[in-house]
């Protein structure tokens, strides 16, 4: 599998030509993202996520290090024909209508005039903005602007979609629609690189993640490999309190559900799992056992806490 993004020792110091800040905004970042992945770039505010994206989009220059995007350096204009980009807090010319702005973007992408109109109608439909096509962008709300931002990013059927905080400003319905758009793009073969603060959404759609904290990459890899198994959960159906009581002393956490059932959590331990399976065999359908995995949110905070302690 080829890498769509390759980053090697990327460092960025902000400041002018003669005066640079002492602390880098991005420090020795090394990251490879394979083709076809949905990569979630996570981290607290000021970690360097947007800086990385801006370097990849050639909006800012790195102080040192190299980056390749679709095999080209970031300043290669032709590579951008295959890239869709949604900036953090997108802004557009307020005097233009949504359709006029998308028409300018389509011209810049070199979309032929005979299919331009059709493609603009398609993307406006995708982001549920068809009825606002002729409205001026200056009058749009944050959520509507975000939708137009998404429309311009997918206008060219990109090979790589780069989204900076795409879920910000969208209502729950809009967030669900955007997640559907991202998954739809993946099914068409588009690779997605996005940064987000909304970890629950990232966990649902990403197959790979990277966590950045204080300008440094803490970890990166496949989500299912990074999130470890943390034990098992035993669900006891209502009316079987005797079974639950048998296991209470061994459980790390016990919850009595409103319907009268029980939920017992056990730490990750092979012997415990064996014992639970024995209970399952003895009591049949009254008991179900599931393995539980650490959530992305728990993993994220654990990593950030470890990094803070070590620094």
């Amino acid at each position: 599998m080829e890498n769509i993004i390759e980053i090697k020792n990327l460092t960025k110091y902000y400041g002018s030509l003669f005066w640079k800040k002492k602390k880098p905004s991005l420090c020795d970042l090394n990251l490879n993202i394979p083709e076809g992945a949905i990569f979630g770039f996570l981290g607290p505010n000021g970690a360097g996520k947007t800086t990385t994206i801006k370097i990849l989009m050639n909006l800012i220059k790195q102080s040192s290090g190299d980056a390749l995007i679709l095999g080209y350096p970031p300043d290669n204009v032709e590579a951008k024909r295959s890239i869709g980009f949604l900036p953090d807090a997108p802004a557009f010319s307020p005097y233009l209508s949504a359709a006029e702005f998308l028409n300018i973007c389509a011209k810049l992408f070199g979309i032929p005039s005979d299919i331009r109109k059709k493609r603009i109608a398609e993307v406006l439909e995708n982001v549920r903005m068809t009825r606002h096509a002729k409205s001026k962008l200056g009058g749009f709300s944050r959520g509507m602007t975000q939708r137009i931002g998404i429309a311009q990013a997918i206008l060219n059927n990109p090979k790589l979609l780069i989204l900076d905080e795409p879920l910000v400003g969208l209502d729950p319905h809009g967030r669900q629609e955007l997640k559907d758009i991202i998954l739809d793009q993946k099914s068409r073969g588009t690779s997605v690189f996005f940064c987000s603060h909304i970890l629950s959404d990232a966990e649902k759609i990403c197959d790979r993640i990277g966590i950045l904290c204080e300008s440094k990459l803490l970890c990166a890899g496949r989500l299912d490999e990074l999130l470890s198994e943390t034990g098992s959960k035993l669900h006891v159906n209502p009316g079987h309190d005797d079974i639950a009581k048998e296991m209470l002393s061994a459980a790390a956490e016990t919850i009595k559900r409103p319907d009268g059932g029980w939920e017992l959590s056990f730490p990750n331990n092979a012997e415990t799992t064996q014992a639970l399976l024995a209970v399952r065999e003895k009591h049949g359908n009254a008991v179900t056992i599931t393995s539980s995995r650490e959530s992305l949110e728990d993993f994220f905070f654990r990593k950030i806490e470890d990094a803070t302690k070590s620094s």
Binding site: M57, V77, K80, R81, P87, F92, L108, F109, G149
Partner: peptide, 11 residues
């Protein structure tokens, strides 16, 4: 940031 959006295109 309007310029950034435009300059992220092949321009």
């Amino acid at each position: 940031g309007v310029a950034s959006t435009l300059l992220s295109k092949p321009l």
